[in-house]
Design a protein around this nucleic acid. Structure first.
Lengths: 175, 175
DNA sequence: TCTTTCGGTCAACGCGTGTAGAGTGAAGCT
DNA sequence: AGCTTCACTCTACACGCGTTGACCGAAAGA
């Protein structure tokens, strides 16, 4: 199961084979079938478990930008939680179920939580933009491994990113 | 060739088969081999052609945020240019060559151009964050099709996003 | 007109995949 | 001890894939 998450996270859904994953785990491929029924089901249980949006929902308007930035790191700096999040993100552009899961189980709840916190005009759109920006930084840093972002200190990155998030939060009037 | 870009853009590298793409184009799969040699080569010529960073490199510090936002739309609102960009982006998380191409042929040049324009402390890091944010919005809107972002007006989206980009550009002092 | 070349097609190979079903050995119950 | 159940493995199937090399008809050159 840990092997499943690791391979899904590293290779994506399509390139991950049940045979390869089973051999990494030291078990028989057929056992994987017996336990999870399906490659699809294995993926969805591997990728959608361990998603935790509490940090976002419990934030106030004051510390929202900080919470969003911290949330970005919490999912990926901790090796335990990283694999599940990486599995979901890695396949979200090529696997329809992963895209749907990310949209409906991560982005939509996060957006409504953020929208409720910031309020004002366009709160939904601004929440969506805020999440899209953190998504972009996450992808570029941890998945795409853009050299500048991947090698940056967490503090430096947070210091640069936070003004952007705060700008989205603060611009709550139709100009 | 148009069919190749379309399928790579819609399905990603792994799910796109030469057979399927050839039948959409009404030709024989073997002809594709003969013309491009390889699935890999076909992909790289389909995905890396038509990348145009001129809008970014020729921007000044004053209109950089505007140029970056406009650049985001230019690649995806125009159906002609969209397919190539979409093909590259769709596979950038699962196909190593696509990731490398995106990093080295798109993000790195864009970052150095932006960094040169904004200058100041951490210019490289801030350029990377700026590009990551536009990348995130692009992915969420056009690839992931997040409902809020996908249905938003171009003007509304630009109005919300621009303050964020400007904040990254403007925060050019170590606090 | 005969020959060569060339754009294009056909059938096929070898491989890796997800998946199914029969089989096996140990453990637990009566 | 005998039977049942369970966790697990072995073998095999059917399929779709990228790729190849032989083949074919038409255009061009002698």
């Amino acid at each position: 199961m840990a092997a499943a998450r690791r391979q899904f996270g590293e290779l994506g859904y399509e390139r991950t084979s049940i045979r390869g994953l089973a051999s990494e785990a030291g078990i028989d491929p057929a056992l994987v079938m017996q336990l999870f029924g399906n490659k699809e089901q294995l993926f969805s249980t591997a990728a959608t478990s361990g998603i935790d949006l509490q940090a976002l929902t419990s934030a106030t308007a004051d510390n929202l930008a900080e919470a969003a930035a911290a949330h970005l790191f919490a999912d990926f700096e901790d090796p335990e939680r990283r694999t599940a999040a990486e599995a979901l993100l890695r396949s979200c552009l090529t696997h329809p179920a992963a895209a749907a899961a990310l949209r409906e189980q991560v982005m939509a709840p996060a957006q409504s939580a953020v929208a409720a916190t910031i309020g004002g005009d366009d709160s939904e759109l601004r929440a969506a933009v805020l999440n899209a920006c953190t998504l972009g930084v996450t992808i570029a840093r941890y998945l795409l491994r853009d050299p500048v972002l991947a090698d940056a200190d967490r503090q430096d990155l947070e210091r640069v990113l936070r003004p952007a998030l705060e700008a989205v939060i603060a611009a709550n009037s139709r100009s």
